[in-house]
Design a protein around this nucleic acid. Structure first.
Ligand code: MN
Ligand code: MN
Ligand code: MN
Ligand code: MN
Lengths: 218, 218
DNA sequence: AATAATTTTTAGACAAGTCTAAATAAATAT
DNA sequence: ATATTTATTTAGACTTGTCTAAAAATTATT
């Protein structure tokens, strides 16, 4: 049985390899988990001995089939619990991450499947992130960053890339939530900002913000 | 912030002092937590340095005010989660203990209070155990062991003392559940067993079983 | 009251997980 | 191709929580 620490490492490796493709560096993992590279090296040795990861010294790591499916299961739990917290307990979307970070480590397959059913088999979490099903398959969603939305075309917010509370609260202030209708009116070259419409109302956002909002075209 | 291990020790001390009054012995704690007396000694030193318990070598331990209130909070979480698992997720009462044993360590006051509200502020868990409120006050219930119910008087099952799955499943088999109407028809002196009525139907239970069922008189 | 049995504590060891500092390998720049 | 910088690993130390075995204190028995 894996410890919480081991589970967090697997999850970090999954996240980083989903983002950057291929193999993951020691430093990237250390950064992701706010720990030191030396601690990561130690842990990589351990996880590799137990066949959770492929690891060649100085060459980075990748998940084994077994490791990937375990990591996906943790992600599944994390996102299901976030749905529970927001939809059933009325938490706000910027409040749930740290709690789900703990709940994801609760061990009971029965619990996960009953929770899934209770929540009506959701496909996306409160931040628009896809929830893998019991077989580990992620639902597809073709989404592009808001910053790459063609001018004048309409889109719908489907997800956010960051889940830091400060970013999420800022989106609240801008009335940007999952499902909101958006449109780019104009690009301001000199500061890379955008004049936009959000649910029909004119607004203004920076490139940094726009890159972290995922849109599906209407 | 307390570790899971420390929390489990505090909870064990609370449980034992509620059962036997006064101060709790090293061996009793070791037994309760399935660990060794030497480990308990070590931990008692640590908890006492941090003022969670009163501890005098060779004299047993008791909780400080602060320790008691922390332990009660863990119990509150444990029992609220059990209610959630049984009432919302349709677990059976013999399946929830181990899961609640993990969930009780999730740290978020906000979560506890929202869960409490979501469940409609329950006063008793699925085994009939009292759930302390946010102030740490336990609801009262004057209950006596089934084995001490006066002959011919009627009673209602309000709680069970043990929560081992095997015991709970056996009660299921006897159709004994929280709320069931019961009555002792006759005491069989030679084997200390009882002829009883459960929801009107005649049955037969041992002293061991009867001692672990709590009744309130009708 | 002295002895025996039981309970509790200490001493020393170990595994997990982390850290700092030093060594080594790999990548980059000259 | 060599030197420099950066990334990664190793060495050694520390904390938490556990264990076994031995020592000490307490309790029970004669
Ligand atoms: Mn986590
Ligand atoms: Mn999320
Ligand atoms: Mn526990
Ligand atoms: Mn219970």
């Amino acid at each position: 049985m894996l410890s919480q620490a081991e589970e967090n490492y697997l999850k970090a490796i999954l996240k980083l390899s989903q983002k950057n493709g291929k193999s993951v560096s020691t430093n990237a993992i250390a950064e992701e988990l706010s720990t030191k590279a030396s601690s990561v090296s130690d842990m990589m040795k351990k996880l590799s001995e137990k066949s959770w990861i492929h690891y060649v010294k100085y060459q980075g790591v990748s998940l084994t089939e077994k490791g990937r499916s375990y990591a996906v299961h943790i992600v599944r739990k994390h996102r299901l619990w976030e749905v529970f917290l927001v939809n059933q307990l009325n938490f706000k979307w910027d409040e749930v991450h740290d709690i789900a970070e703990q709940l994801e480590h609760i061990k009971s397959l029965e619990l996960v499947s009953k929770l899934d059913a209770f929540l009506n088999f959701p496909s996306f979490d409160p931040h628009g992130d896809p929830i893998p099903n019991a077989e580990g398959i992620f639902p597809k969603s073709l989404a592009i960053p808001f910053s790459e939305l063609p001018i004048k075309s309409r889109g719908k917010v489907v997800a956010v890339v960051m889940d830091e509370p400060s970013f999420l609260k800022y989106l609240d202030k801008l009335s940007i939530s999952i499902g909101a209708q958006v449109e780019i009116i104009e690009v301001n070259e000199f500061d890379d900002s955008f004049d936009v419409k959000i649910n029909g109302k004119q607004s203004h956002i920076s490139l940094d913000v726009a890159k972290n909002i995922l849109i599906s075209l209407l």
